[in-house]
Amino acid sequence: MKVIGAGFGRTGTRSLKAALETLGFGPCYHMSEVIAEPSRVRQWLDIGEGRASNWDEVFAGYQSALDWPAASYWRELAEHYPDSKVILTVRDPAKWYASVSETIFASALAERRSLPLRRRVVRWLVRRRSPDFALYPRMAKATVMDRVFDGRIDDRDHVTKVFERHIAEVKATIPPERLLVFEAGDSWAPLSAFLGVPVPDEPYPQVNERAAFRRKRPRRLLSLIVRGR
């Protein structure tokens, strides 16, 4: 593991994943990897509920890791991979909250409510066809919603304070020479310099995470139902 992402989800992690892979630090582990391979959900559920944390097994074949759930364990990963560099992706707190509350948190809060018949049928089909992916809400709760936010994801002030405190804690914990505080708008120059590689002759990737989230989950659920993964 050469690069560990300490930034929360919805801080440009999808764009940074593409950037790291362009720079030669791929494959890059991201929540999208967990969704694409439901067996990984069970791995993270074991970690979140305290049964196992074999980091080398979880990240086998990957040179970098970003986004939740990996970012929830940035301290453990930074200690386990002492030669890795750490990238803290940051964003304006208000804009970050707007993004996370309309995507990840909205999905998690929906799990707490009584679902309409159509959603209950879809959930039943997913559980039948993909038992591992059916554990996704429980995994997300254990590794992100409860671990990071104490389950209070419907409390805007609390969530924003956690976000700001997290940034301060990473900056205070990781030595400056090992840490890059990065915003997607910073583009290639600071990232390439930090990693010691040339600046690519192409634009920095721009992935609309909110739009990708909205497109990806319905397609993934349909795929699970059809193929039974």
Rank of each mutant, 00 (worst) to 15 (best):
R120M: 11
I87V: 15
E209K: 02
D56S: 11
N208W: 02
V122Y: 01
R120Y: 03
A70T: 15
V170Q: 08
R178T: 06
P190N: 11
V207S: 03
R138H: 11
F25L: 09
D154N: 14
G228A: 05
R220C: 05
M1N: 00
E102R: 13
V34N: 11
R112A: 14
S32L: 12
E209P: 03
I167L: 11
P82F: 10
S130A: 11
D146M: 10
L179Q: 09
W96Q: 10
L222R: 13
P175D: 07
C28W: 03
V90G: 01
R220W: 08
R214N: 13
A172G: 04
A6G: 11
V86N: 01
M145P: 00
A106S: 12
F213P: 01
T11N: 06
S223I: 00
M1E: 00
G196E: 11
A211I: 03
F8W: 08
F194H: 10
K161A: 15
R112L: 14
G7L: 03
R127N: 13
A142F: 07
E49G: 01
A140G: 12
F105V: 04
Q63D: 15
R123F: 00
A65I: 05
D132T: 03
R119E: 15
L20S: 12
E209S: 14
R219S: 14
A94S: 13
T143N: 15
C28N: 14
E183Y: 01
V199Q: 12
R40S: 09
K95Y: 05
W44P: 03
P137Y: 02
R118H: 11
G26F: 01
D146W: 01
T11V: 04
K85S: 11
D46V: 02
D201M: 06
G12T: 06
I153Y: 02
F182A: 03
E177F: 01
F133S: 12
R14W: 09
E209H: 07
L135F: 01
C28T: 15
S39P: 00
R118N: 10
L135M: 14
Y81S: 09
R120T: 06
R215W: 07
A110R: 12
P93Q: 05
N208E: 14
F25P: 04
F105I: 09
P218C: 09
T103E: 06
P203Y: 03
L179T: 10
D154W: 08
P131H: 09
E164S: 11
S114Y: 01
P116F: 02
